Amino acid sequence: MSAVLADPALGSAPGWPLVLYFHHVNALVDHYTALSPDDFRRGLETVLDLVGPALDPAAVGPGFRPPDQPSVLFTFDDGYRDNLEVAAPLLAEFGVKVLLFCVTGELDAAERLSEPERAALPPRKSFLTWAEAERFSAYGHVLSAHTVSHLPLPELGHGEAAEQVAASLRGVGERTGGPVRTFAYPYGLIPERSPVPAGVLAFGTVKAAPASWAHRPLHIRRTYLPVGQVARWAGLAIGWRKQWFESQ
């Protein structure tokens, strides 16, 4: 992966929504997509003010047509407990809805733990139960798929990778009662031969090149707000908005 692609300053394809990804809103987590609550609030303010309004994730799926102004799709990966307990109230302050890409096997495992067992887990191991994920969904957020086991798909055989994707899509669909139209690759690693079934949009990370969703619906780029670089965020947001107008 080139350094240019990895740079978060490179946003989405011109004319398409900016897509941001997070894992945690938790001051105790050290990860490049984990923000403290105060920084997450500041990030929401910055992006919404300087890029554009939040996109409704319920509108995102195959055949999606981008709005005629810059907009932002907010996404979370994995399905951690702090997404509900910490992020959800902050998102509600701004009226922002998100796509939550769930590792379905981890949510299954969380269901089997007692509350004392869950309370003893570090934040990086503390996942939502399905009941909690459904509460998150009841706030207007959209549950989606991120494989069963969060394995790097290019390292699997095609059949195993396809089953990881399909089983997670089924698992989320059974819980939500509707078709699941989006998927995110673990670690942003996209196999050469697609394991994603027809009728699904698939999201990468900063490892994916910016390209029209209509032309590369299985390679959608996402970027992020760099942790510890709050002073840089306004410049990033202004740059992302300018990129939206390129080639228009």
Rank of each mutant, 00 (worst) to 15 (best):
Y187H: 14
E163T: 14
G178M: 02
H146L: 06
L153G: 14
R170L: 13
G178F: 00
E174G: 02
A208M: 04
G157I: 12
P197E: 01
K207V: 14
G204C: 05
A214W: 10
A166G: 03
L143W: 00
T147Y: 07
L151G: 10
G204M: 04
F183T: 10
P179F: 04
H158W: 13
V172W: 00
G177N: 05
S168L: 10
A211E: 15
A214H: 10
H141Q: 05
A167M: 07
A145N: 01
S212E: 05
V148T: 08
R181C: 04
V200I: 12
L151T: 15
Q164R: 09
F203M: 13
H141W: 08
F203P: 13
G173L: 06
G177D: 07
A208E: 12
L169A: 05
Y185D: 06
V206M: 12
E155G: 15
R181Q: 04
A214T: 05
S168V: 09
E192Y: 04
A211T: 15
R175G: 02
P186Q: 08
H146N: 06
P179S: 06
A166W: 09
E160S: 11
E155F: 14
E192C: 03
Y185T: 07
H150E: 14
L151V: 15
Y187N: 12
P152I: 09
R175C: 03
E155M: 14
A214E: 11
A208K: 04
S144D: 14
F203Y: 12
